[in-house]
């Protein structure tokens, strides 16, 4: 089937099986920041924003994406908000192996766009679906806390 959606503000049209995972479609479209860590909705490495909401693209059938806006880090990294999150993670030291990082950046965007001034507890809750095996999370949480200050007014 043909599916049309907006990827990082560009219209795209793909011809695929309706049950194909959004994850695979995006990776075929060279969105390699979208990773497969588990394939079953548990790790968040495949996170993307679907109409602004954080979702695991491994659980989304492409047919349901018709007409939607999909944002991956490939698009998001060109924004001012990304610069703030990047600076936050740099200051906190929230990146080690980096495999989880694109998912956490988009999770941070989802948290901050919902609430520009989240508490530590709200951030923890907001990244609950994203696993990181390297950092122990606190330095990622600190990165998002730093980002909300650095990017004040952007969200």
């Amino acid at each position: 089937m043909k599916v049309n959606f907006v990827l990082n503000q560009n219209n795209v049209s793909v011809d695929v099986e309706h049950s194909n995972r959004l994850l695979d479609v995006l990776r075929d479209l060279h969105q390699t920041s979208v990773k497969e860590g588990c394939g079953e909705g548990e790790c968040g490495t495949c996170s993307v924003l679907l109409n602004g909401k954080l979702v695991n693209s491994c659980l989304i059938a492409i047919a349901t994406v018709e007409g939607c806006h999909v944002t991956t880090l490939e698009g998001y990294r060109n924004t001012k908000r990304f610069e703030a999150i990047k600076k936050g993670f740099e200051v906190s030291g929230g990146v080690q192996c980096g495999f989880c990082t694109p998912g956490f950046v988009l999770a941070a965007e989802a948290i901050l766009s919902e609430n520009p001034d989240p508490t530590t507890a709200e951030i923890r809750k907001g990244i609950e679906g994203n696993l990181c095996r390297c950092t122990g999370y606190q330095m990622i949480i600190d990165g998002i806390l730093a980002a909300k200050n650095i990017g004040k007014g952007l969200w």
């Binding site: 390699t32 990304f82 030291g93 980096g98 990082t101 950046v105």
Partner: peptide, 23 residues
Amino acid sequence: ESIKRFDFEDKISGKAIYTPDVH
């Protein structure tokens, strides 16, 4: 004294190419 990691830019921006990303 801590400095910015040299692998930071590639990883934070999703540009780092891991093995499954090679095509």
